[in-house]
Design a protein around this nucleic acid. Structure first.
Lengths: 187, 187
DNA sequence: GCAAATTAATGATTTATTCAAG
DNA sequence: CTTGAATAAATCATTAATTTGC
């Protein structure tokens, strides 16, 4: 019996420099902004940045807090792996599940009318599961027709790199980061 | 505020499935018993029940009132999401309260790394069928079950497995449902 | 006390992701 | 690159709580 006692210590552990206890830095801890940018890059399709890209990202993120190139490298490594892991687990469960039970997906169709005045009526007949093996094909077809989400992945987020950064010029100290769309253009 | 009173004329739906008393059908409204069981299952670690688990749960809960599989599915989806949401909000408040700085850890925006989803501790749930004398306050928050897989989104449209309770036909008198400890064993 | 009015919960849908197969 | 599968997040919509004026 394994609990996953994953000590998820409550937040607020402002470690990595702690409350004035010396200058010792533990491991890198991304700030919200850093995390947001990294996540956006990931969503934009970036998975394994090149050394050059890592360098640029690191530089960009350094505006929001201390960070090293290796942190960026590790982040992508870990994030990619964990996302995959998550999906893989689902797949395993899925297979396992279907190994024990046939898909129940294409069974019946919706009967919006199971709400009825008199609860006495025995709807059991309609509701009885029954084996819909012979009919499954048409049902599946219907499902397919509806279920397709033709949403193509949006790699295009980066496409909007209009190559202009109000911050790139002049050495003015920037107080606030540019909006995301612009920030992503540094790559 | 912010309630969009959208036309959709009410069709005089008085109440949905409330406790097995005469009803029409609005949306499903869990009875206390149903809610208790669902909550217990969630506390026990169940997060994303499989299709067959949903079916069993639904059947079990039908002893207490009308219910459909999809209700169970939705309940877990919503409950899981809202627990997560709640936790996230707490974190934010916590951080605000502590004047967190941008340079420190700032994890409230889902960082996959801290936000552990439901792990897989299926055995835990399935192996402690009975004897779950849950005092409903133990700190087994870490326990997670991952029995998951396919989501109902499509399934629900094709399926309409209303579990009918022997009670829903009123008059019929059946033995009272078993105590909770036993009830949880149906999974 | 009691409903109309308003707010809080929460059931039900839709949308946006991710990985991976084709 | 496209599409299939399976969500989780965001949102919509309806019901329950509650507040409020009488």
């Amino acid at each position: 019996m394994s609990f996953s006692v994953k000590g998820r210590s409550l937040r607020g552990n402002s470690n990595g420099g702690g409350g004035g206890t010396g200058t010792k830095c533990g491991r890198w801890n991304p700030t919200v902004e850093q995390l947001k940018i990294l996540t956006d890059l990931f969503r934009a399709g970036l998975r394994t940045p090149t050394t050059d890209q890592i360098q640029k990202i690191s530089t960009e993120l350094s505006f929001y807090g201390k960070i090293e190139s290796k942190n960026v490298f590790y982040w992508f490594q870990n994030h990619k792996a964990r996302e995959r892991q998550k999906r893989r687990k689902i797949s395993i469960d899925f297979d396992h599940h279907h190994h024990h039970q046939p898909s129940t997906r294409d069974v019946f169709e919706i009967s919006e009318e199971d709400c009825q005045e008199d609860e006495k009526v025995i709807e059991t007949l309609q509701l009885f599961p029954v084996n819909s093996f012979e009919d499954s094909n048409s049902k599946v077809e219907k499902m397919r027709a509806r279920g397709n989400n033709n949403q193509y992945r949006e790699y295009i987020r980066e496409t909007n790199t209009t190559s202009f950064s109000p911050y790139s010029s002049c050495g003015a100290e920037m107080e606030h980061p540019p909006p995301l769309d612009l920030r992503l253009s540094f790559l």
